[in-house]
């Protein structure tokens, strides 16, 4: 058995496999399929200061090797989470990380403050990259100034591990990564969904009630890998890799590109047991390739001498 433990700032994980927000509910939905105590961490559904109804149906469209969603942060609000959901989750021995979303800086701060006071919750993931809400969301993640401002405001009142989830819908993701690092983020997770669109040619209508939505699944993996690699060159804080991870090999590719941990998202919909298989697969890979610790894989990409790195100008 290889040493699979990894660390995101002060947050220690028994392995690098986490579940992406919005794809694993609160974990309980998958308890019949996965021993939740095996997971690195569970990142729960995007949570806002007050209850949100989300967007109208239809919210999902299947696309080539992926899916578009426009759920729009449907959740019952932070107070409901704290009083009605969290007490049920306490029995599990793994970290739960709340994905914090909002439309205004005040809303992010209010939610983060409430979570700061719950000792057993070791980290939050600041969602400045949701493409499916009219106000806030991705708007905070597509400008360096706004990203830094919301990160700094939450940093001032939140004293545990602060992860900022980045949007790929930008010209240069490394600039945003540097901005949130400078504003006090302890780690970044990337990527959130890519803004996309699907049309029904027969009815001549969009397939989503919001016309556009967020693309996820294996279709976005090469983009996510590229962005993790670029951000790894640009910042010093740990990176959590997300984007179309369907199996252990995909997960390992993200580690090699520079991620210290990974999040499994859309794959949970196709195989609810996949997280468990990915943990086993990472261990097998380490043993087969004589890595005693998964940490040795992080950024261990081998760049052959003749390689021309297009990212270096």
């Amino acid at each position: 058995m290889a040493n699979l433990t990894t660390q995101i700032h002060r947050l220690k994980l028994q392995n690098p496999v986490m579940t992406a927000s919005g794809t694993f509910g609160y974990g309980e939905e998958f308890a019949d399929f996965v021993d939740l105590n095996r997971l690195g961490a569970i990142i729960v559904k995007g949570t806002t200061s007050t209850e949100r109804e989300g967007n109208p149906y239809p919210r999902m469209a299947e696309t080539a090797s992926g899916m578009l969603n426009s759920v729009g942060l449907q959740n019952k609000g932070i107070d409901y989470f704290i009083h009605d959901i969290w007490p049920r989750l306490k029995k599990y021995k793994i970290p739960f990380i709340v994905n914090v979303s909002g439309s205004t800086i005040e809303e992010y701060v209010e939610t983060a403050e409430k979570l700061n006071s719950i000792e057993e919750l070791p980290a939050i993931e600041l969602n400045i990259s949701c493409p499916n809400v009219k106000e806030g969301g991705m708007a905070f993640g597509t400008s360096c100034t706004a990203a830094a401002k919301v990160t700094k405001s939450v940093r001032d009142i939140y004293h545990k591990t602060l992860i900022v989830k980045l949007s790929p819908n930008v010209t240069d993701i490394t600039e945003i990564a540097r901005a949130v690092e400078g504003a006090g983020a302890d780690a970044v997770s990337l990527i959130n969904t890519l803004l996309g669109m699907a049309i029904d040619a027969n009815s001549r209508k969009p397939l989503l009630s919001t016309i556009t939505g967020g693309l996820s699944g294996p279709a976005i993996k090469p983009i996510a890998l590229r962005m993790v690699w670029q951000v790894f060159q640009a910042i010093k804080i740990p990176i959590i890799g997300i984007g179309g991870i369907m199996n252990a090999t995909d997960a390992i590719e993200f580690l090699l590109a520079g991620a210290s941990a990974i999040e499994v998202g859309t794959a949970n919909f196709i195989d609810p047991t996949i997280t468990s298989k990915i943990i086993d697969g990472i261990n097998d890979y380490c043993e087969r390739n004589h890595f005693t610790s998964v940490k040795d894989l992080v950024g261990a990409l081998i760049i052959p001498e003749q390689t021309v790195d297009m990212n270096i100008s």
Partner: peptide
């Protein structure tokens, strides 16, 4: 019958609007 992804209540894609919201 609604378009569905997970079938487990996690993805919130197959919602229908009811007296109790989506």
């Amino acid at each position: 019958e609604q378009t569905m992804a997970c079938g487990l209540g996690a993805c919130l894609c197959c919602v229908v609007n009811t007296k109790n919201g989506n």
